[in-house]
Design a binder for these strands. Structure first.
Length: 264
DNA sequence: ATGGCAATGTTTCATTGA
């Protein structure tokens, strides 16, 4: 079982690449961010033809999230947004897929430390934490997948000295990231020995990808109940190559086959 | 010191992203 998180930076533009990627990687669950796609325009039928059902929470121009699941899996309990938090921005969608609760998140960027958008990011994250705490109580097998817009520590930053204290890397954001983990979640990527300088986002400008000047800001956090089932967690760097890539590469976690386990 | 790329709609520029 493979679960992925991918900020596609416009589903409309990325659809050909998404379809090719689904066929190549055959993930079971995919959490998409920055679909920038209103619900009425969501390419539900095309994805169904490709073998995936979907739920989506979009808006015009900005943000937008969706969860894809293989058609033969059971998807239920779809929830949009954070409960008891009126957020005009479409940044969260959750669904239960074959007993796993998947929460797809697009954390605000924050623009600059101390800015109004930074305060929104911090407040938003406090609401997300409360929401995840509740979700964990109801669903022990939980995945929080998406674009967190936080590089958890210096290993996740191409040039820590340049980025120190900057947006995506500030202490306040890193404390916030750890506050998610303290709920009983773990960064699946760090469960495994990883090579250095693995990132999930590279600036389109200044040959950022060629020079590997990136950040690891896209994450798959998993609950304790899923930890022992997780067998790998990687970034599909190749997806950042070629024609019209997203500026983010997908994060993919693989889990031991659950179907046999369900028999007992 | 600034913008540099890409996507969107308010479209031939401004805004946003990270």
């Amino acid at each position: 079982m493979k679960i992925a998180a991918w900020n596609v930076n416009s589903l409309n533009v990325r659809l050909p690449r998404l379809l090719a990627w689904l066929e190549k990687q055959a993930p079971d669950i995919v959490c998409l961010q920055e679909t920038k796609c209103e619900n009425v325009r969501f390419p539900q039928d095309i994805l169904l033809d490709a073998g995936y059902q979907s739920c989506f929470h979009g808006q015009k121009t900005y943000n937008g999230v969706a969860i894809l699941a293989r058609r033969d899996m059971a998807m239920s309990e779809v929830g949009c947004g954070i409960d008891d938090y009126d957020d005009p921005q479409a940044r969260v969608i959750a669904a239960t897929v074959d007993k796993i609760r998947a929460v797809c998140v697009y954390v605000p960027n924050g623009q600059a430390v101390g800015s109004e958008k930074f305060e929104y990011k911090m407040q938003w994250c406090r609401h997300l934490r409360r929401y995840l705490q509740e979700a964990l109580m109801q669903h022990p097998e939980l995945v929080v997948a998406g674009d967190f817009n936080i590089a958890p520590d210096d290993r996740d930053v191409c040039d820590p000295d340049i980025w120190r204290g900057q947006i995506l890397c500030s202490d306040e954001e890193r404390v916030t990231f750890r506050s998610f983990l303290s709920l009983g979640l773990v960064d699946s990527f760090r469960l495994f020995k990883q090579p250095p300088n693995v990132f999930s986002w590279w600036d389109y400008r200044q040959l950022g990808f060629i020079k590997n000047r990136g950040l690891r800001i896209d994450h798959l956090l998993i609950s304790e109940a899923l930890r022992s089932q997780c067998i790998s967690s990687t970034i599909d760097r190749d997806e950042r190559k070629g024609e019209k890539p997203s500026d983010h590469a997908p994060a993919v976690a693989e889990f031991r086959d659950r179907r046999s386990a369900l028999l007992f």
